[in-house]
Design a protein around this nucleic acid. Structure first.
Lengths: 215, 215
DNA sequence: TGTACATCAGTGAACGCGCGTTCACTGATGTAC
DNA sequence: TGTACATCAGTGAACGCGCGTTCACTGATGTAC
């Protein structure tokens, strides 16, 4: 379906309502998690009947897709902006953490347990790679002082399929991967509340991992 | 309610049915995730009516609690057994990975996005700490060659509340935390399928993190 | 060993709820002449 | 500027479904004398 001229009042109203639906959806997700997302509940909250939302989203899955897309977009922009205003690798890492803490369920929608029965569309992986590229660039800049495992860089050197479109020294890729997995490790355990039982300070752990990464 | 003598036939039948309910529950979780768990569906699968299950579990939450407890118990035993049969730290780490890959949703039930609306009971944290102790012991044994961040060990030295019951050198705690968060980082991203888009080999990453940890 | 009673597993009906989604329709808004 | 028509937002009823949970009841299994 080709959408018409977006400058007509009707079209502006459409995008406005779509935006409000998604706003309510985020509130719902923040409260009860993504699997509890309900079109009817959102409609009720907006003072409309349930079926009305089908003017704006084909079905529940399309709404989730749009939410995933928006979240990726927002994270990609956040990191891009930080990088463009001079943030180094630790700066980007902290921007990531801030973003995650601002709305834990939004972070978990992207990187947590997959929503059962929902399959992410291909085009979101493009944005996901945009995020990767921003981080890899920062990794490349931070390189000299960083160490890299030899077994891993062998794997990465052979790793043409994906890396071909994103030329970067294997050491930068190795740093990126360690950064990504380690920060996600701390972040996801923090968001799931697994440190509270043992009374650890997640921020200290996060900073410690960051310091270790940069040698 | 005090349960009676567990050796009477009736009592043995009870525990047997409870076990089968949980078996079916695991199948369901493995397929559709924990939030899709349904008492009625389990009953139907067992050829019984829905209300029958209320003879065995007070409600849905109690079933989930029992599943969480069983998962923690199983993981704790797996690691304990591995440690007792001479596994070192990398051995324990690989046992953890094997356990997670055997049933991803089971791992995610413990360490993934929390089930919305469900609050874990206190007594499961005891088993969770048992797991931590097993790993910390292995960390202590692996110590000499491992490095530790100074900012982190300061935090850990001040960290009496939890560590008092589990005396271990701060360096061992630091190693344990790095181990836990890093392995979880790789594992959870692997289980969520986030490496497939970039065609990375999760096992290589896992081993690389392990090698880095042990200096 | 046999009878009387208590215990307990499991059933079927019912309650109230919310879900996603389809469909025929009303009424307002925009468009073309 | 006014009229005729097309477009589209939103409604209400309905479908079919599954959920957790309660309740009165049947029938089988165990217990006590």
């Amino acid at each position: 379906m080709a959408t018409s001229d977006p400058n007509t009042p009707r079209e502006r109203y459409r995008t406005q309502v779509r935006a409000e639906v998604m706003e309510r959806a985020w509130e719902q997700i923040a409260t009860a998690g993504a699997s509890a997302l309900s079109l009817n509940a959102i409609a009720k909250q907006m003072g409309m009947s349930g079926p009305a939302l089908y003017r704006y989203f084909a079905n529940r899955d399309e709404l989730i897709t749009e939410l995933v897309r928006e979240a990726y977009r927002d994270l990609a922009d956040t990191l891009r902006t930080a990088a463009d205003t001079g943030a180094d690798l630790p700066g980007l890492a902290r921007a990531l953490r801030t973003w995650a803490l601002a709305d834990p369920q939004r972070y978990l929608l992207l990187y947590g347990t997959p929503v059962p029965g929902y399959q992410a569309p291909e085009d979101t992986t493009a944005i996901s790679q945009e995020i990767a590229v921003t981080l890899i660039d920062a990794c490349t800049a931070a390189l000299p002082s960083a160490a890299s495992s030899s077994a891993l860089s062998t794997h990465l050197a052979d790793h043409r399929t994906w890396a071909a479109d994103h030329p970067a020294p294997p050491e930068a890729l190795a740093l990126f991967l360690a950064l990504w997995t380690r920060l996600h490790g701390v972040l996801s355990l923090e968001l799931a509340g697994h440190f509270t039982g043992m009374k650890f300070d997640a921020e200290v752990l996060f900073e410690s991992e960051l310091a270790t990464l940069l040698g």
